[in-house]
């Protein structure tokens, strides 16, 4: 069982990222669940969802201990870092999280300047896709090429095809 929390500000594509990753897990033959924080929190500006990948039946949609924290803002780290498993993976958005922030020393922290990377491809709304690239390259959950294709498929189905997404994804996948 892999338990992941995706968290950030509303509008950063957090819930969409979680859905794409859950769907990618389903296509790998895993049992998956995606559970949003659908309450008043979202209207207050933060959004998060829990995504679980398992060989077995999934009971609760909640995370017991977090294996991966896919975060796009600092409040998400404040809220969820303590619940990461020792050895867990913490992806942070170094475009807005202060460089001097201290992290737990028993988790793997990868700092990704998602906003700068997305801006460099003239795709400012692609910051979450940069982070999905970094996730693919560092989690062992997904094959990066396969996930890149699934992201394109997801947006194509919605009529929002954007070739810059793949560039953002590749740049994210180069970060270790």
């Amino acid at each position: 069982m892999i338990e992941m929390v995706c968290a950030g500000f509303g509008g950063q594509g957090i819930l969409t990222s979680g859905l794409i990753l859950a769907e990618a897990g389903m296509k790998l033959g895993k049992n998956v669940s995606w559970y949003p924080s659908y309450g008043s929190e979202m209207r207050g500006g933060t959004a998060n969802c829990t995504v679980k990948f398992s060989e077995r039946e999934i009971a609760s949609p909640y995370a017991r201990q977090i294996d991966i924290l896919f975060s796009l803002n600092e409040p998400s780290i404040d809220k969820f870092e303590a619940r990461l498993k020792p050895g867990g993976l913490l992806l942070t958005n170094s475009s807005i999280v202060p460089a001097g922030r201290k992290y737990r020393d028993d988790v793997r922290v990868i700092k990704v300047p998602v906003a700068e990377i997305a801006a460099s491809y003239d795709n400012p709304r692609g910051a979450n896709i940069v982070m999905m690239g970094t996730l693919a390259a560092n989690s062992g959950l997904f094959d990066a090429d396969a996930l890149a294709r699934m992201i394109d498929e997801y947006f194509s189905k919605k009529g929002k095809q954007n070739p810059k997404n793949a560039l953002c994804f590749r740049a994210g996948a180069d970060i270790h």
């Binding site: 859905l19 859950a22 049992n31 998956v32 669940s33 995606w34 559970y35 659908y38 999934i58 949609p61």
Partner: peptide
């Protein structure tokens, strides 16, 4: 219930 309504699964 809200959990079964909001969760996404296969």
């Amino acid at each position: 219930d809200a959990a079964i309504g909001q969760i996404a699964e296969a």
